[in-house]
Nucleic acid binder design. Sequence first.
RNA 1: GGUCCCUUCGUCUAUCGGUUAGGACAUCUGGUUUUCAACCAGGAAAGAGGGGUUCGAUUCCCCUAGGGACUGCCA
Length: 446
Amino acid sequence: MTVICRFAPSPTGRLHVGNVRTALMNWLFVRERGGKFILRIDDTDLERSTNEYEDGIKEDLDWLGLNWDHTFNQSHKFPAYEAAAKKLREDGRLYPCYETSDELDRQRKLLRVQSKPPIYNRAALELTDEQIKAYEAEGRSPHWRFKLSGKTVHWNDMVRGEQSVDTGSLSDPVLIRGDGSFLYTLPSVVDDIDEGITHVIRGEDHVTNSGAQIEVFEALSDHLPVFAHTPLLVWKDGTPLSKRLGSLSMGELKEQGFEPLAICSLLAKIGTSDPIEVRSSMEALKDEFHFDKIGRAPARFSDEELLLLNGRLLHETPYAVVKDHLESINVGGGEEFWNLIRANVSKVSDTAGWSTVLYSPMPGQIEDADKDFCAAAAECLPETLTDGSWSEWTAKLKAEQGRKGKSLFMPLRRALTGRDRGPEMGGLLVLLGSEKAKARLRGETA
RNA sequence: GGUCCCUUCGUCUAUCGGUUAGGACAUCUGGUUUUCAACCAGGAAAGAGGGGUUCGAUUCCCCUAGGGACUGCCA
């Protein structure tokens, strides 16, 4: 059986880490099983959906490496949803309701105050023809609810095991709004049937939904996908992610200089029994993905962890992979430069600072007590530098100046780079060149 | 209020009744670099609380506490 999964974002905003995790789970599962990944744009809400967001979402997925085999918009499929609604009406599963939103709101509040579950009372089922005519005469157009069976729905969830939802304790879901537009539930089920979706992988906020949706599936066809409800993502301190989604959008993370693979690695690993480590390819992530590795507690997302993984990834990234990125941010220096400094960067943009150190005029950093020492060091620095120059030079300085260890090396590092920490000095010295090095040791800007 | 879910080293987690409770990240120590960072090795560190069941409970059951999801003419 070919596995077919879908990711179904609404184009009402850019993708954030929560969405991406869902997309990633679907993608990893499909690619591991050699199936089809469908990108469905849930734009039935024409008011809030925009083309810009749709393009943004596609751009984000592209950037992350989550490629899809097929994509379509729900807004192009209204006839199919109408047909499904017609069938449900004919079968007596879809019934018109005339309450206003305010009335329903009041009813729910009242029930809550009485400590009763806020379930729709199905008053619309009792309406007489006269009452309906009266409502229509008032100009009210009905919204339509799906009549749940009241039975308990069972399914075997790939993450949560045996699940049951008592549809008797649920409100009949509204499928069609008063203005005739479709809510999420019906189009989603119709499309899952049409596309032959075999596995629905989504967040556990949909668990109750699935109970109702399964009944809609059963009312429309024999097709029923397997469900997998993954735990939600929370912020590192355990608070809901929703408060900071703005700063966790892909657009934002990209701008902050995070690598797609670091993001995917983190999102694929948190909340699982695998160690949180970066992987250098989506292939590797795919091979390690398994539903039985997913825990059931909320997965914690940490920006610090992301930065760490980003650094680890860069430490082993070959020049060819970052070449374009380096050129796009105008970083001087080629392969030698990258190989030397990559172990000391967390983000590609950190290379800019090292590029300045090596290729732009800047003053060294010399403390008063080290002035004479640095001047002397400048004197005996050879004109031509090779890989061995650093150790020869420092050995000579050690003998002549009587300095060793930290007091020997730190002043040189500071004078030459202006920094306390950084890559191995031997390599830096060669890239820096003798002339520049001498000038900086004398306290000049070079 | 109701339904469902969760609670193990600082953090994310493994364990399907008997384990020296394992790993990863962070932290600490050592090595390497005649300095720092990076890198490598090693150490310390844990089953919310209370009851059961059992020869034996982190594991099964109940209660308490804490956290989360759902309970929309949102998705």
